[in-house]
Simulated scan of single mutants.
Amino acid sequence: MTQNHAVPAALAEIVDDFAGVPDAEKLELLLEFADELPALPERYDGHEAEMEQVVECQSPLFLAVELEGEDEPGPESVVRLFITAPPEAPTTRGFASVLSQGLDGLTARQIVDVPEDIPSRLGLAKALTPLRLRGMSAMLGRIKRNVREQTGVA
């Protein structure tokens, strides 16, 4: 297993999955993740206006970050992620699914501490344009910003 300092176990496992396949198969793996993006709960389904759009993504992507469990949000608050992207945008959905599966349910501190280079650690630079990779970086940045704003975790 690859050493992934500050990378939570679920996300580290996904990074290792990508590291374990040849470059030619990395895009295919990302598209498998696209099919696994969790459906939105009823309160968000069809209500993207109540979510935040990540405009850096080439396709319409909306996300919501919620905290659960504690009266006073802080570093140990559990973070729930809700992300949607259209089926006709499989790359964007794949990135969203990687982040959803790798970050949902972690604490605020764990998410804020995730390294910024996670998109490059997936090894997709040969398969995707830099613009698409920036979209994933923007998603991660937006999630981390939301967590910081809601919890005060630096």
Results as ranks from 00 to 15, higher is better:
Ile111Phe: 01
Ala64Asn: 06
Leu40Thr: 08
Ile111Arg: 01
Glu72Arg: 13
Leu30Gln: 09
Leu40Met: 05
Met51Pro: 10
Gln58Arg: 09
Phe18Thr: 10
Gly69Phe: 05
Glu68Val: 12
Val114Leu: 03
Val114Lys: 04
Glu70Phe: 09
Gln150Tyr: 08
Arg132Gly: 04
Val54Gly: 08
Gln58Glu: 13
Ala138Arg: 02
Arg145Thr: 15
Gly135Val: 00
Arg145Pro: 01
Ile83Thr: 03
Phe18Met: 05
Gly102Ile: 13
Ser59Ile: 08
Glu116Asp: 13
Val114Ala: 06
Tyr44Arg: 01
Ala39Trp: 01
Ile111Leu: 07
Ala127Cys: 04
His47Val: 08
Pro86Thr: 09
Glu72Ser: 13
Ala64His: 10
Cys57Asp: 10
Leu103Val: 07
Arg80His: 12
Leu103Asn: 05
Thr91Ala: 14
Glu68His: 08
Glu28Ala: 12
Glu116Ala: 15
Arg109Ser: 13
Leu131Phe: 00
Val147Ala: 13
Gly123Trp: 03
Phe18Glu: 07
Pro73Phe: 09
Leu67His: 08
Ala85Asn: 09
Pro86Met: 05
Glu116Cys: 02
Ala34Met: 07
Asn146Val: 04
Glu42Met: 08
Val21Lys: 00
Pro90Ser: 10
Ala19Asn: 11
Arg145Val: 07
Ala138Asp: 01
Gly102Asp: 05
Leu124Asn: 02
Ile83Arg: 00
Arg121Glu: 08
Pro60Met: 04
Ser120Asp: 14
Ser77Val: 14
Met136Thr: 01
Thr129Asp: 06
Gln101Asn: 14
Ser100Lys: 04
Leu29Tyr: 04
Leu31Cys: 10
Glu36Phe: 02
Glu42Cys: 06
Pro75Glu: 15
Leu106Trp: 03
Leu63Tyr: 01
Asp17Phe: 05
Asn146Thr: 11
Asp71Gln: 13
Gly123Lys: 05
Leu106Cys: 07
Val65Lys: 08
Val55Cys: 01
Leu140Pro: 04
Ala127Trp: 00
Ser77Glu: 11
